[in-house]
C-alpha cells in the first residue's frame, strides 16, 4: 500500500517543480534551464540545516529563501540576454552549481552525498510513514498550486504574460521588464527550493546526480505534456510522467535497462508531444507556437541575418 503513497509523494514533489517551472518558462517566457539546480539548492540547504539541528519548518523556509536568492542573483545577468543566450547562460549557471555540489566536499560531501537526513517533523510529530509524508507533501502542493494560480491571474501575472508576448511593447507601456523577469525567476526558484526540501526529507539521502540536466529535461517534458502555460496542465504532466514508467518495475529487468527504458520513454513522449500536440493536453492557448507558422519567426530572423 505504501507503494501507492510513494508514487503520490513523487507526484506532489514533481508537481511543485513542474508548476514552478511553468511559471518561468510558460507564463513569463523565460527559457530558464537552472530549475533542477534550484531544486538541488533547496534540497542541500534544507538537509544541511536540519543535520545541524535546525527544525524542519525553518529549514523548509530557508530552502525557499536561499533558492529564491539564487534565482534572483542569476536573473540579474540572465534577463539582459535574449532567448537562446538566456537559455545558455542559465544552463552555464546550473552546471556551475552542480560542479560546486560535487566538489565542495567540506560542505556537501561531494558525490558521496548527504545521508541520514532526518525525516520531516513538525512540532514534534514525525512524518515517518509514507502516507503521513504524503499529507505534508500534498498540503505543500496545494498551497503552491493556489499561490501560483493567483499570481498568474493577477495584474502582475498579466504583465508577465505581456512581457512574454512582446517585451518591447511592454516597455513602451511603462513596464520595467527586468524587474518582472527577476521576480518570475525568484518565485520559480523558491518553489523549486521547497520541492527540494521535501525531497531531501523524504528520501533522506541526496547527492548531486539528482539535480542534473537530465532531471531538468524530465521537468520540461512534464510541462510540455501537460500543457505549457497551464497550471493544472503542469500538475497533470507531472502525474503522467511519474506514473507512466511504473509498470516497468514489475518486469524484472536489470536496473540499467529499466533506467534506459524510462529515459527513452519520457524523451520519446517529449518529442512526440512537440511534433503532434505541442500545446500539451491542457494548453488551450497557442503559446509555444508563433502566430504565422509559414512566414515564421525563424525565417524573418534569418533574413535579418
Amino acid at each position: 500500500m505504501s507503494y501507492f503513497a510513494n508514487i503520490l509523494v513523487f507526484i506532489c514533489i514533481y508537481g511543485i517543480l513542474a508548476i514552478s517551472l511553468n511559471l518561468t518558462i510558460g507564463f513569463a517566457g523565460i527559457f530558464n534551464l537552472t530549475h533542477a539546480a534550484f531544486f538541488g539548492i533547496g534540497a542541500y540547504t534544507s538537509a544541511l540545516l536540519t543535520l545541524t539541528g535546525v527544525p524542519f519548518w525553518l529549514s523548509f523556509i530557508c530552502a525557499f529563501l536561499i533558492a529564491a536568492i539564487f534565482g534572483f542573483l542569476i536573473s540579474l545577468p540572465a534577463t539582459r540576454l535574449k532567448g537562446i543566450y538566456l537559455a545558455i547562460v542559465t544552463f552555464g549557471f546550473a552546471e556551475i552549481i552542480i560542479a560546486v555540489m560535487k566538489n565542495w566536499q567540506g560542505l556537501t560531501r561531494g558525490p558521496l552525498g548527504l545521508p541520514g537526513i532526518p525525516k520531516a517533523s513538525l512540532f514534534g510529530f514525525k512524518f515517518a510513514s509514507t502516507w503521513e509524508f504524503f499529507v505534508l507533501a500534498a498540503v505543500v502542493l496545494i498551497i503552491t498550486y493556489v499561490i501560483i494560480s493567483k499570481i498568474v491571474n493577477s495584474p502582475f501575472g498579466r504583465t508577465m504574460r505581456a512581457i512574454r508576448d512582446d517585451e518591447i511593447a511592454a516597455k513602451a507601456l511603462g513596464k520595467n521588464v527586468m524587474k518582472y523577469k527577476s521576480y518570475a525567476m525568484l518565485i520559480g526558484a523558491g518553489f523549486a527550493g521547497i520541492a527540494g526540501s521535501l525531497f531531501a526529507h523524504y528520501i533522506t539521502f541526496i547527492d548531486p546526480s539528482s539535480f542534473t540536466l537530465t532531471e531538468l529535461i524530465l521537468m520540461l517534458s512534464m510541462i510540455v505534456v501537460g500543457g505549457i502555460a497551464s497550471v493544472p496542465g503542469a500538475l497533470l504532466g507531472a502525474a503522467i510522467l511519474v506514473i507512466l514508467p511504473e509498470p516497468l518495475r514489475f518486469l524484472y529487468l536489470p536496473s540499467s535497462i529499466v533506467a534506459a527504458i524510462r529515459q527513452m520513454l519520457f524523451s520519446g513522449i517529449l518529442i512526440a508531444m512537440l511534433l503532434f500536440k505541442p500545446n500539451g493536453i491542457l494548453g488551450e492557448r497557442r503559446l509555444l507556437l508563433k502566430k504565422n507558422a509559414k512566414s515564421s519567426w525563424f525565417i524573418k530572423k534569418l533574413w535579418r541575418g
Binding site: I25, F31, G83, I84, A87, T214, I217, L220, S221, V224, A259, A260, I261, R262, Q263, M264, F266, S267, G268, L270, I271, L274, L275, P278, L288, L289, K290, A293, K294, S296, W297, F298, I299
Partner: peptide, 23 residues
C-alpha cells in the same frame, strides 16, 4: 519544429539527446 519558435526545436533536441543516450 523550426518554424514553431525558439523553444520547440531546442526542447526537442534535449529529448533527442536523452533518447540517444538511453538507446
Amino acid at each position: 519544429l523550426y518554424t514553431k519558435g525558439l523553444m520547440p526545436p531546442i526542447i526537442a533536441s534535449f529529448g533527442v539527446s536523452i533518447f540517444l543516450q538511453a538507446l
